[in-house]
């Protein structure tokens, strides 16, 4: 079988880059004078001004508390059950009145895939993913958030995606 060579037809005679060049130069020069889109990060953050995070942003978790400052969690065990990354550790306890509460509630934020299922599944609206992104730490261990830490977070919580209102209107 003969070898078939595909010959690319390069445009040679019909080509002029003169106008395209001048047009391009005009475009770049006009962009020189246009307002810039850079966020000056440490000074400006996405919480204020021109930039804002979506209310559906799913960041590190936050546990909501009741009026007495106790976690709303009733240790039903749904969130560790649904968690696809298996990052929630929950040990339930029960007080003398029969109220269930978490003895241990830890979220490993390194394992977490930020799917937001825990917030969706929570019957008490206790655990939430947060609208937040500044999470730097010096030790890996610090990324396992315990209950106290989850309750102490103050950032806004995610609204998640509502199927009945897909555009968030």
């Amino acid at each position: 079988m003969a070898i078939r060579v595909k010959v690319m037809r390069r445009p040679e005679r019909e080509v002029s880059y003169l106008r395209a060049t001048l047009k391009g130069m005009a475009v770049t020069f006009s962009h020189l004078l246009q307002p810039k889109v850079t966020m000056q990060y440490p000074e400006e953050t996405a919480q204020e001004g021109f930039w804002h995070l979506s209310s559906r942003w799913r960041g590190t978790h936050r546990m909501l508390t009741d009026e007495q400052g106790r976690a709303k969690c009733v240790a039903c065990g749904l969130c560790p059950q649904i968690c696809p990354a298996n990052c929630i550790k929950l040990v339930p306890g029960e007080d003398e009145d029969g109220h269930r509460y978490p003895l241990i509630y830890e979220i490993d934020e390194f394992r977490c895939v930020f799917c937001g299922y825990c917030q969706e599944v929570c019957p008490e609206e206790a655990i939430h993913v947060g609208v937040h992104y500044e999470n730097a730490e010096y030790q890996r261990e610090r990324f396992v958030y315990d209950l106290e830490r989850l309750c102490a977070q103050t950032h806004p919580v995610s609204t998640l995606w509502d199927p009945s209102d897909p555009r968030g209107e």
Partner: peptide, 14 residues
Amino acid sequence: VVFGLDRRRVLAGT
């Protein structure tokens, strides 16, 4: 020279 290079031709695709 400009006419010879240009002749109202534009690079295909632009």
